[in-house]
Amino acid sequence: MSSDVRFTDFKSDKQPTWCPGCGDFGTMNGMMKALAETGNNPDETFIVAGIGCSGKIGTYMHSYALHGVHGRALPVGIGVKLANQDLEVMVAGGDGDGYSIGAGHFIHAVRRNVDMTYVVMDNRIYGLTKGQFSPTSREDFETSTSPEGTHQQPVNPKALALSAGATFIAQTFSSDSQRHTELVKQAIEHDGFGFVNVYSPCVTFNDVDTYDYFRDAIVDLDEEDHDPGNFDQAKDKILDSEKEYIGVLYQDDDSVPYGERMGLEGSMADIPDGAPEDATDLVREFY
């Protein structure tokens, strides 16, 4: 049935409550298109969403989905994927969910390299709680909880990922629908942990990192003769604080996902209606 799947099959009949103009609309549409165009269908797809504006995405999409506690979306997604290798697993959240409360899980998810996709809607602000600074906010960003700036460095999630052994790092911009969709598709098709940071502007609480700002600042790596397989080039681009690159920053073509390293296949849901046939051997071990 997968060939018949259209991206609207991934859309639920629930209308998003995001603010008009929110970057998350474009982010979600690209995710749905990418899923459909990579041959997935809603009944074999599992979306895990974090907490925050972005976390509502599971409700607006149609698939198997779980909307969990703040910051723990990645472990849930990893658990789903390992327990059933046949599912397409996509985790979606915001910069607060992924790089603040969930930062610990982020680096471990990266280095574990489970075959799944992680889409972070990075708007550099806490929107759902009405405008506090986030881990990716600039140092001079003034908010209700940082009236004179944040007094701290923003997190560079792509640098964290690269240093943690990432096998796929991409950056997209939610309003560049075609490019965003294409990059999410590449992340889905990557054999391993496909990490996509999406500039997904908040039109209500962030008047610095706006659509206009990103349109001016963005440089597409396709126009830069960038080789994603080259670690040093990736490092230089990721650490370049002057520009906002979009495209595949880094990809390791030799990536072997965790599930494969563990020898996992298929679903763990299928079990006998009693103890396994040779379970008595387990008892005998204790002689």
């Binding site: 472990p75 390992l82 059933n84």
Partner: peptide
């Protein structure tokens, strides 16, 4: 924090 959420994911996928 991760352990329990991993287990939760496994259970949602249908594993014991």
């Amino acid at each position: 924090l991760s352990a329990i959420n991993l287990a939760l994911g496994g259970a949602r996928a249908g594993a014991r």
